[in-house]
Amino acid sequence: MIVVGELINASRKKIGQAIMDKDAEYIRSVARSQYEAGADYIDVNAGIFVEEEADYIKWLVEVVQQEVDAPCSIDSPSPAAIEAALTMHRGTPMINSISLEKERYETLMPIVAGTDFKVVALCMSDEGMPETVDDRLEIADKLVNGLLRNNVDIDNIYVDPLVQPISTNKDFGTGFLNSVEQIIKRFEGVHTMCGLSNISFGLPNRQFLNQLFAVMAISKGLDGLIINPLDRRMMANMIAAEALAGRDQYCANYLQGFRQGLFDI
């Protein structure tokens, strides 16, 4: 299981403000707390700034990696921003994300081709957002095969089947879950990951729904999550769910988590 800490995102007000104020101290503290809570990658996003995005995301990478010894998930659809971030990045980054949208696909593919980067492949195309399992599989097929042709190892591909809100269509949850199952069956060795918060958009008690949905997705084989790692119940659920889903040999992670007090919530 790979955990990407999602908190350093400029669309969150405090982060956006900290970026404008060049408040490195605050960014560092958010990076540190996510890292200590178990994030494998620290997501950095400066998307709301549009014109200054490349400069700001580069600065975020620098500040985050001064504080923690973890790779970043470079969260942008813009090749200019990703390239700027890469000039500063140490280690092997995650690129979040490529999609089948023509412009995004064509401009990002050369950046990831032949690299060891982890690549999130988002199931979205110029035809819009996929609604059914078949829509998602069709996009995933083109993305995965495109990445393989460009010498990206299957073990570095994380397909994101795209979570959509159940508040607008009751079948969006099962559509996602069944897609995870089908994608890992069809492309042996590929990973799946997602952000969760869309699932509960427009509903109360969002955190509770997000936590449960993570467990349901893990049971289908999902092995990457873009989440708030400071959500202790989410992290505990995730470790327990992996053990219950048969992906924790000798329950070693579960027991380690127990000894670290992760289940004392």
Binding site: S167, T168, L203
Partner: peptide, 10 residues
């Protein structure tokens, strides 16, 4: 005000 939710609004 968060008393009704999206499916209800729709």
């Amino acid at each position: 005000r968060g008393q009704l939710f999206l499916p209800e609004l729709i």
